[in-house]
């Protein structure tokens, strides 16, 4: 297979590889199952968020409200199930979260597809609205006794084990959900007409409209789907944390978008791959979890992530600029 050095994916994969080699060189215990399970666990919620953010970027928009959708959904799910439906099994809780998320996503969808408002402004507004509504009318206190279904889901593990030094490692079953989300999204994007239409709209709305694509319908689908994913991620987050804290999650949105862009999705729309997104998330989680292994103090974590964003977006931008000036000359 020929390696394309100009692609973001290659660049990110190389940085991940270098990071792992350096990590292994400075601490032999870095290459262990515990590091891997930590990495996978860190990627569960972030991974679902990233897939959602990528889908919106591909369609030519930007969504900053998905963290608020997730926080809203997890809190409402915990409150409603506790109060009215404690018998709901774990899959029912996830399903309930998806429905709530879909409704919130539909609000974004109506404003964007129906009224034709700019995506950044709408989602900026709904971010405040969802969060404000939850904190004003539903509650501000964290819920430490989750409904039985969510507690049950929180205890589900795929693998469980003990390290040589006696500490435990485990991998949560929710990892399967993330895998499923990636697989389903891949199928939609690559194997259905709808997926190709999402790319087409991101490339050029006007061209898409002229070849007969129902632009509004596709946009509406994108925001509802993103709402479903965000709701799912919210319920998973609180099940894993064993608490529903309404102040969680909001504030992550720009880091998630950064991870996706690092993986090659473009803000201008029409570009983005799941491989790139997964690599971008991996890199961000790796930096968060194991920067200390490389001897970089935790206080420098955000400097490192910031520098990676500049590097990851700067190199392709610089290459494009050079190519453009060369062709002009």
């Amino acid at each position: 297979m020929k390696i394309d050095w100009t692609r973001n994916e290659t660049l990110v994969a190389l940085v991940i590889l270098a990071f792992c080699l350096l990590g292994a060189a400075s601490d032999p215990s870095f290459l262990s199952i515990a590091t891997l399970t930590d990495l996978l666990r860190g990627g569960i919620v972030l991974g679902i968020f990233a897939v959602a953010a990528m889908l919106v970027l591909i369609s030519g928009g930007i969504d900053v409200s998905f963290t608020a959708v997730a926080a809203f959904t997890m809190y409402v799910t915990a409150v409603v199930l506790n109060a009215a439906m404690p018998w709901m099994p774990w899959w029912g809780a996830l399903g309930f979260g998806m429905v709530v998320g879909a409704c919130l996503g539909a609000i974004n969808g109506i404003l964007i597809a129906g009224f034709g408002l700019p995506t950044l402004i709408v989602t900026l507004g709904t971010l405040s609205i969802f969060r404000g509504f939850m904190l004003t009318f539903i509650g501000q206190r964290q819920i430490t006794t989750l409904p039985p279904g969510m507690r049950e889901f929180g205890r589900m593990m795929l693998i469980r084990g003990e390290n040589a030094d006696g500490s435990f490692y485990n991998l949560h079953a929710a990892f399967l959900v993330t895998l499923l989300v990636v697989a389903l999204t891949w199928f939609i994007l690559q194997r259905t007409m709808l997926g190709r239409q999402i790319y087409a709209i991101g490339g050029s709305v006007e061209s898409a409209r002229r070849i007969g694509i129902n632009v509004r319908g596709v946009q509406f689908f994108v925001y509802v789907y993103v709402g479903i994913l965000a709701g799912l991620a919210g319920v998973i987050h609180s099940s894993m944390a064993r608490v529903a804290n309404p102040f969680d999650l909001v504030g992550l949105e720009l880091s998630v978008i950064a991870a996706v862009v690092l993986g090659g999705a473009r803000l201008a729309g029409g570009h983005g791959t799941l491989t790139g997104t997964v690599l971008g998330v991996t890199l961000i989680v790796l930096v968060r979890n194991s920067l200390v292994v490389l001897g970089i103090p935790a206080t420098w974590q955000s400097v490192t992530i910031g520098a990676l964003i500049l590097l990851g977006t700067g190199l392709p931008a610089w290459q494009a600029k050079r190519a453009a000036s060369r062709s002009a000359a």
Binding site: S302, G306, I309
Partner: peptide, 12 residues
Amino acid sequence: LATLGTGLIFTG
């Protein structure tokens, strides 16, 4: 993206 990255760096 540029200012998102530098914002993290300045905060860092």
